[in-house]
Simulated scan of single mutants.
Amino acid sequence: MTSDLSEPSPAHQVTRKPKVSELVAAELRRQIAYGRWRAGETLPSEAVLMERFGVSRPTLREAFRILEAESLLNVRRGSNGGPQVCTPDIAVGARYVGVLLQVSGTTIADVLEARLTLEPPAAALLAARRTDQDLRDLGDCVDDFERVLEEGGDGLDAGVWVSLTQRFHDLVLERSGNQTLAVQVGVLWEVVTRHVSVAVHGFASPLRPAEIRQLAGSCRRLISLVEARDAAGAERHWREHMQTEARLLLRDDLAAVTVLEMFG
């Protein structure tokens, strides 16, 4: 059988050599990651960096654009400007992950299932490691949750509900003490937030006040379990809470909405 010469075999594929600008960006990225420059600090002048790396101004500026796209730099214009180091937002990771999910046609139900697998163990870690400040912050979040609900009556603003819900989930992840888990689930939560935005714009009231009161009470229950350092109970309860939350979010046939539809 004659082989198809239009596509080279893996053995003959040529690995692309990185551009000089990519190599410069990689080195600057490494130095930022190691803390040579902190968020808010400005990198040395272009003249200094050009001499240090032995590159032209256009090459250096292309490296800056690469890091700007990654939200590691913010290049300010003007005489007092320059490349300022930024703290990358988790939304940046969500955009890249979103592209991968788009290609595979992933549904929001699939994303929520992944969260359901990862986030309850964070609740268990929180219960085992919690501090008094953690309890206060979680309690304050639910206080705000209930206050807004009471003030809104039957006309609860769905956008406020989304914001407060996200904050509580963020606290559970942040205070678990496991940064890897917090980042992974945080990226998925960004995708879920997109879904909620679809629900908010498509329906006047995604959740009824009685349903939100139920979720608020469930958050109170988690705080009690965390305070008692009941790790197993916290994990079990938070899984049940998230299952209930998912059923409410995925009604009206929204389970089949794909990540492509939300990010596109």
Rank of each mutant, 00 (worst) to 15 (best):
Met1Tyr: 07
Met1Thr: 13
Leu5Met: 04
Leu5Pro: 02
Ser6Leu: 08
Pro8Lys: 08
Ser9Thr: 11
Pro10Gln: 06
Pro10Asn: 09
Ala11Thr: 10
Gln13Val: 08
Arg16Ser: 05
Lys17Trp: 07
Lys17His: 15
Lys19Tyr: 11
Leu23Ile: 10
Ala26Met: 12
Arg30Lys: 12
Ala33Asn: 03
Tyr34Leu: 11
Gly35Tyr: 03
Arg38Met: 12
Ala39Thr: 08
Leu43Glu: 09
Pro44Phe: 06
Leu49Trp: 04
Glu51Thr: 05
Arg52Met: 09
Gly54Tyr: 05
Ser56Asp: 05
Ala63Glu: 03
Phe64Glu: 02
Ile66Ala: 12
Leu67Lys: 06
Leu67Ser: 07
Leu67Trp: 02
Ala69Phe: 07
Leu72Gln: 11
Val75Glu: 01
Arg77Ile: 06
Gly82Leu: 11
Gly82Val: 06
Cys86Gly: 03
Thr87Glu: 14
Asp89Ala: 12
Arg95Gln: 04
Val97Pro: 07
Val97Phe: 15
Val99Gly: 14
Val99Met: 11
Val99Trp: 14
Val99Cys: 09
Leu101Gly: 00
Gln102Ser: 14
Gln102Cys: 13
Thr106Ala: 15
Leu112Phe: 08
Arg115Asp: 01
Arg115His: 04
Leu118Met: 08
Glu119Ile: 00
Ala124Tyr: 00
Leu125Glu: 01
Ala127Pro: 02
Ala128Tyr: 00
Ala128His: 00
Thr131Gly: 14
Asp132Asn: 14
Arg136Ile: 03
Asp137Gly: 08
Gly139Ile: 00
Asp140Asn: 15
Asp144Met: 03
Leu149Tyr: 05
Leu149Gly: 03
Gly152Met: 06
Gly155Pro: 06
Gly155Trp: 10
Gly159Tyr: 08
Ser163Pro: 01
Thr165Trp: 00
Arg167Gly: 04
Leu171Lys: 12
Val172Arg: 01
Glu190Phe: 08
Arg194Ala: 10
Ala199Leu: 10
Phe203Gln: 12
Ser205Val: 13
Arg208Gln: 14
Arg208Val: 05
Pro209Gly: 10
Ile212Phe: 04
Leu215His: 15
Ala216Gly: 04
Ser218Gly: 05
Arg220His: 13
Ala228Leu: 05
Arg229Asp: 03
Ala231Thr: 04
Ala231Leu: 04
Ala232Trp: 02
Gly233Ser: 08
Ala234Glu: 00
Ala234Cys: 01
Arg239Thr: 00
His241Glu: 04
His241Cys: 05
Met242Lys: 03
Glu245Gly: 02
Ala256Gln: 14
Val257Ile: 15
Gly264Arg: 07
